[in-house]
Amino acid sequence: MLAVDDLAVSYGAVHAVRGLSLTVATGEIVALLGANGAGKSSTLNAVMGLVPAASGRVEFAGQSVSGLAPERIVRLGMTLTPEGRHVFPNLSVDENLALGAATRNERRAIEATRAEVFELFPVLAERRTQLAGTLSGGEQQMLAIGRSLMSVPKLLLLDEPSLGLAPQIVDLIFDLIARLRTRGLTILLVEQSVDRALEIADRGYVLRNGQLAMAGRAGELRASTGVERAYMGLADV
């Protein structure tokens, strides 16, 4: 579904990502791991067209999306739930969800998706008219994911969904990601909670200093030790 080939991202003289190739097949959860600053978010942002790629190709559903604006890419069926949630704080929960469906026209289909989102996150249904800025961190994360689902993506890029959340909420979010896959969604997950991410992922890629350090089945990566775990940002565990 997604094929990234020899991707490079630079911010001025800083090379955030170099020579990265990865694939995500339909129905998979793929984890993109690595320490802080390893280039995970830069990769997602470049795939999504939010930052320009210095070189390399990105193909989505058999079509090149290199150089396309993010709004075009969203319309093709790939979307990103950004790091730090980025709900619109001055808009209500309902309005945030309505914007998530901005690419769609049929009212009834949108209504059906919203019902599904409320089924996944009952707490959002209780807070429909509340401003998103007044939600708790966990609720904002649910809203951010729900908002992404409103566009009915084929591929969801999730950037650090557990960042800054309480442990029970993190459990809830990971359960949810696993459930989304059973609904046919393909997911590329960036996470710092490496063990949690590998529990639900099929495969993983590990970045170090912007380059691919390891790749493999989730089980193999979980079994890795020592220096390899350090690459994943687990040096302090």
């Binding site: 980025h86 619109f88 690419t103």
Partner: peptide, 19 residues
């Protein structure tokens, strides 16, 4: 809605598929 959203966070508004 997109105008109000973009006033706070233009980049994320584009992620909604808004031109």
């Amino acid at each position: 809605l997109a105008m109000r959203a973009a006033a706070v966070d233009f980049r994320t508004t584009r992620l909604m598929g808004i031109h």
